[in-house]
Design a protein around this nucleic acid. Structure first.
Length: 426
RNA sequence: GGAGAGGUGGCCGAGUGGCUUAAGGCGGCGGUUUGCUAAACCGUAGUAGGGUCUAAAGCCCUACCGGGGGUUCGAAUCCCCCCCUCUCCGCCA
């Protein structure tokens, strides 16, 4: 949520910033400005009447105490109260409508974010060598089947397409990745590990920006709870409606969770194998920062996600997303794309974003710069550290050998209990 | 799921319709006293929204006693619905 005062005082600045995202936000902005105007007018009227009523009530109280007749003062107060009730209702309605629309407005991209749509995304750097494979590269779904790592048809039987069943060494690989990543982030990057709820309520999903506009991408239960699309949602909301001390910042949490995404309407492209699925595993990093430090925190966070890929020896590139491509809540996002030799493409395995005070405002997460100062909204940031499916894709496809085996990187081998995956019977 | 007890400021805790601008205590902040510390004493203090002002400060107004409705001229207090915590029962990995 953006600051209504910024919109009130510098509407053209906000309009220009939002326009960089593309899409038509003009009418929404106009209606917000108008609602804000009407709300304040109504508020001023009703508050004036309330002041009158309070004064009159005091007189009544004083008379009653003195055993005098208060009838004369009471006359007319009923009408005043009815008028107050009417205006109060009006103000409440306007405020609710205003709030609802403010929730639909995306964050403002930072100035250093490039103009344009996805085509304007900028590759900031590339790490690692794209492997030169001795034999024709197989895609991961072939490798995974041959190595007995996962069984997609049976996953589809159990639940539906996009719900993978990991088997044997594949299931063990998932467990190895969980432990490898959690160990790295807690031991070397200073994160506090948490294991959050996987179902969240409406307020929580609104706090990070999934609701109201992205509801179609989430699974909802009969109880009105949502399956988490990412650990960002429950973890960022750990401090919802709290005021942290300046000494608490920066603060970082790491969480492993499954993630559930309906991704309604995204069938057709990039859907083979594990590339785009409805349930996947991810280790997520969430940071809370003061506004001054959030730019450096963002770079630090990006580095933590990169460290995972470097340890695993997976070639990747860092992409600064253009204004038209950054997510709803984000002000600036770097994607980490891993190279996958089998499908011969770059796949997004992590997204490192700063949300400035956008989520903090929605979720009411504040901090006190000094013990005697007023609470201010802090900044939230997060990054995948990292998503499993595309990491698995890169590992399998890049490390495949002519004999059909897959070499496991040194950093991961102890967690997997082996340094090579081989087809059954080989 | 059933029965009961609760939810008041940073914390504890009083408050059954108007003298509450939420008592009192603890903690916080400022000060006085004081070799130093402690204690004592005095003072001060919340959050949000709106108005005033070029802006800040200040000042004024409104709201806030778990959340939302209602009764009333007036609600922390009375009524209704919901949420959460605790105790017991039931069910359960």
């Amino acid at each position: 949520m953006i600051d209504i005062r910024l919109l009130r005082e510098s509407p053209e600045q906000v309009r220009a910033a939002i326009a960089r995202r593309g899409g038509q936000h003009g009418p929404l902005l106009d209606s917000i400005i108008q609602l804000d105007q009407r709300r304040r007018e109504t508020l001023q009227k009703v508050e004036k009447l309330k002041a009158e009523r309070n004064t009159a009530s005091e007189v009544v109280a004083r008379r009653k105490r003195a055993q005098e007749d208060a009838g004369g003062t009471l006359a007319g107060l009923r009408e005043l109260s009815e008028e107050i009730k009417r205006l109060d209702d009006e103000e409440r309605t306007l405020d609710a409508e205003l709030h609802e629309r403010l929730l639909q407005l995306p964050n403002l991209p930072l100035s250093e974010v490039p103009d344009g749509g996805a085509a304007a995304n900028r590759v900031v750097r590339t790490w690692g060598e794209i492997p030169k494979l001795a034999s024709p590269a197989k895609p991961h779904w072939e490798l995974g089947e041959a190595l007995g790592l996962f069984d997609l048809p049976r996953g589809a039987k159990i639940t539906g397409s996009g719900f993978p069943l990991f088997t044997g060494p594949g299931a063990r690989l998932v467990r190895a990745l969980i432990n490898f990543m959690l160990d790295l982030h807690t031991r070397e990057h200073g994160y506090t590990e948490v294991a959050p709820p996987l179902l969240v309520n409406r307020e929580t999903a609104t706090g990070t920006g999934q609701l109201p506009d992205l509801e179609r991408n989430m699974y909802v239960t009969e109880d009105g709870l949502y399956l988490v699309p990412t650990a960002e949602v429950p973890v960022t909301n750990i401090h919802r409606d709290e005021v942290l001390a300046a000494g608490d910042l920066p603060r970082g949490y790491v969480a492993y969770t499954p993630c559930f995404r309906r991704e309604a309407g995204s069938h057709g492209k990039d859907t083979r194998g594990l590339i785009r699925i409805h349930q996947f595993d991810k280790v997520e990093l969430v940071r809370f920062s003061t506004p001054e430090n959030s730019p450096s925190e963002h770079e630090k966070l990006l580095g933590h996600a990169e460290a995972v890929l470097r340890r695993l020896g997976i070639p990747y590139r860092v992409v600064l997303l253009a204004a038209g491509d950054v997510g709803f809540s984000s002000a600036k996002t770097y994607d980490l794309e891993v190279w996958a030799a089998g499908v011969a493409t770059w796949l997004e395995a992590s997204s490192a974003s700063t949300f400035t005070d956008f989520q903090a405002r929605r979720a009411n997460i504040r901090y006190r710069p000094r013990p005697d100062s007023k609470p201010e909204f802090l900044h939230t940031l997060n990054a995948s550290g990292v998503a499993f499916p595309r990491t698995i894709i890169a590992l399998l496809e890049n490390n495949q050998q002519p004999d059909g085996t897959v070499v496991i990187p040194e950093a991961l081998a102890p967690y997997l209990g082996r340094d090579r995956l081989a087809p059954a019977g080989a």
